[in-house]
């Protein structure tokens, strides 16, 4: 799946601008960005719900806008599944079987049983967690290779959330599919995703393997004799400061910064474990508003 030069303006405002990336199957990709960064718009454009102002989305070389049949390979699961409140479980099954020729009914019932989801007359009767599970089960049964999830764990309790994430991981482990998750829950994506797309002001700021990204940065705790020198402040991102104690993110591979710090003879210069959240803050800025 390839996203090439996609731009989208809504009400004359750029929501996405010149987005390029491609995704292969067999991975879990996290789309992260601050609220209003354009995560949902990106996912909706990738499924053809919205027309891009410029650019194209292709699967196996076919544009999803010119050849919509190719969208049998993509399924979008929105953050709330209000569309089928009045449908029974069976009716939804009939609907999806008729849309996706590769729909695997046996697999569907297998998952329903495993997560002890009952068949109901109206899916509106499902609890919030059941609805989330149900839309995932449906999505996984369609046989689509690219599964786009918008905030799949929003508002779920811990137990259901774990179930949702586990079925998601098994899906990737068992089949040749890719799951694209938009989320602001960085702690969840931390170990689950292998790639991260960061969106900032409608632009893709980076598409990296998480491990690659972690090798680029280093999180350290510093205690200076006095305050941090001004010239050093320009080189690092300060996550936190209490008195003379600083927590900063710095470039791991730049000996210059390392050297600068050593020159100030800090009282403490210690590496801390680097979390996705730290990179997020370093890349997209602003300690607050992460979630």
């Amino acid at each position: 799946m390839k996203i090439s030069r996609v731009s989208k303006t809504i009400h004359g405002k750029y929501i996405l601008s010149d987005i390029n990336f491609s995704i292969e199957t067999g991975s879990i990709i996290g789309v992260i960005g601050r609220n209003g960064a354009g995560k949902t718009t990106l996912l909706r454009t990738m499924t053809g719900i919205l027309d891009p102002t410029k650019g194209d989305v292709t699967i196996d070389g076919y544009s999803i806008f010119k050849k919509p049949q190719i969208k049998e390979q993509v399924i979008f699961v929105p953050d709330s599944s209000e569309a089928f409140k009045n449908y029974s479980t069976k009716e939804i099954l009939t609907l999806y079987k008729n849309i996706y020729p590769k729909f695997d009914e046996e697999y569907f019932y297998g998952l329903m049983e495993r997560f002890s989801l009952p068949s109901v007359k109206k899916t509106g009767a499902y609890s919030k967690g059941m609805k989330a599970l149900f839309s995932l089960i449906i999505a996984f049964s369609t046989g689509a290779r690219y599964i786009l999830l918008d905030e799949p764990t929003d508002g779920l309790d811990v137990i259901v959330k774990k179930q949702v994430l586990q079925i998601l991981i098994e899906e990737v482990a068992a089949k040749d599919v890719s799951i694209i998750i938009s989320s602001h829950r960085l702690d969840e994506l931390e170990f689950m995703a292998n790639k991260i797309i960061m969106i900032k002001d409608g632009k893709v700021d980076s598409l990296y393997e998480i491990e690659e990204m972690k090798e680029m940065y280093k999180k350290v705790q510093l205690v200076f004799k006095e305050t941090m020198p001004q010239n050093l402040k320009k080189e690092v991102t300060i996550l936190d400061q209490t008195g003379r104690v600083y927590t900063v993110i710095m470039d791991r591979n730049d000996p210059k910064i390392q050297h600068m710090i050593e020159e100030t003879e800090p009282l403490l210069f210690e590496e801390l474990p680097l979390l996705l959240e730290d990179i997020f803050v370093a890349k997209l800025g602003g300690v607050s508003h992460v979630s």
Partner: peptide, 15 residues
């Protein structure tokens, strides 16, 4: 298996 362990730990199967 890779599938069992990744699901159990809720981590990426590639890891």
């Amino acid at each position: 298996s890779v599938r069992e362990l990744s699901s159990h730990m809720v981590i990426n199967p590639n890891t």
